[in-house]
């Protein structure tokens, strides 16, 4: 393999990992408060289509990003109301959100299929982008790639170093105890769910505004689900999520690698790789049942009903 190819692969892996990183960062906060939202795929698709339409209509990709984050949190509010206020099953409600988002995004997006938008200009970081190999691979990206890294630091800082992080942890580990010391459990969970929605919307917008950039029905192709898996096998740790997202970026662009090495394998078989990799990693990491039980938020997936406390 020559140097150019390594640069290309690294560049593409970072780009491919970025939407996964956005979505997984939102979901990890959501899960840390004890709420499992399987609607990531639906919220991503809505973020992708609304972000694209807003950017196309306004001619400004930044407005697209804001629109995508707003629609993502709006979608997550439907989920939040059903599971937090009505105590609906989180698995079923999350699935409903994905089915709804897939249908609705295809429905409203049919008018902008085939259009293109300008997207973002790459931002060369002075000094660093001149370095050999990594300069072009890591420091000549669009601004959202850097935003994802900044967000990862922020989420990690808030979760591990702040009072808010402690509150989130308390709600996720033992909502009854948190309630007893005066934490508004449902309010914390609502906010976490909305943060997850906004991040999923942002991840979707990255696909339609930067990655492709265009809108195609079902264009996220399961990335919302892969992000969910990522949270599980990162053991709810932000550092592992960052690493995992970029590793999955590599798995998703393996066809480039294999082509570079002169192999010829059907692109349809190579398209399976990220999904196969997800299963393999999940098997390797979850096999230790005891460890996973120890690391998962204790109240994950379980409803909390303040009515029954009175």
């Amino acid at each position: 393999m020559d140097i150019d190819l390594i640069t290309q692969i690294l560049f593409a892996a970072v780009k491919t990992g970025t939407p996964l990183l956005f979505v997984a960062l939102g979901e990890v906060i959501c899960e840390k408060t004890g709420v499992l939202n399987l609607g990531q795929e639906g919220m991503m698709l809505m973020g992708a289509v609304v972000g694209f339409m807003a950017a196309y209509g306004s001619g400004n990709a930044g407005i697209g990003i804001i629109g995508a984050m707003l629609i993502g949190s709006a979608m997550s509010l439907i989920f939040g109301f059903l599971v937090l206020h009505l105590g609906a099953n989180q698995v079923a409600t999350g699935l409903a959100l994905t089915i709804f988002g897939t249908g609705l995004s295809a429905f409203i997006g049919s008018s902008v299929v085939g259009h293109t938008i300008p997207g973002f200009q790459p931002m060369h970081i002075p000094g660093l982008s001149e370095l050999p190999i990594v300069g072009k691979a890591l420091f000549s990206h669009d601004p959202l790639v850097y935003l994802a890294v900044v967000m990862a630091f922020l989420v990690s800082y808030v979760a591990n170093r702040t009072r808010l992080g402690l509150t989130i942890k308390a709600v996720g580990e033992n909502p009854h105890a948190a309630n007893a010391i005066g934490i508004k459990v449902l309010r914390v969970r609502y906010l976490a769910v909305m943060f997850g929605g906004a991040m999923a919307g942002l991840g979707g917008a990255y696909m339609s505004l930067v990655y492709t950039p265009m809108w195609v029905e079902n264009m996220t192709a399961g990335r919302g689900w892969i992000a969910l898996a990522l949270v599980v096998f990162a053991s709810w740790r932000v550092g592992n999520i960052v690493l995992g997202a970029y590793l999955f970026g590599v798995a998703s662009i393996m066809h480039l690698v294999l082509q570079g090495m002169g192999w010829s394998i059907s692109p349809n078989l190579l398209a399976m790789l990220p999904y196969v990799a997800t299963i393999v990693v999940m098997v390797l990491i979850s096999a230790d049942q005891f460890k996973e039980k120890l690391l998962a938020p204790r109240s994950l997936g379980k409803p909390f009903d303040p009515r029954q406390m009175a």
Partner: peptide, 22 residues
């Protein structure tokens, strides 16, 4: 009417069902 309306109705139906189950 775009055919995607079917998928959207399916999602809405499940939402309403989960809400009514309350």
């Amino acid at each position: 009417i775009p055919i995607a309306v079917v998928g959207m109705f399916q999602g809405v139906l499940l939402f309403f069902l989960l809400a009514c189950d309350f």
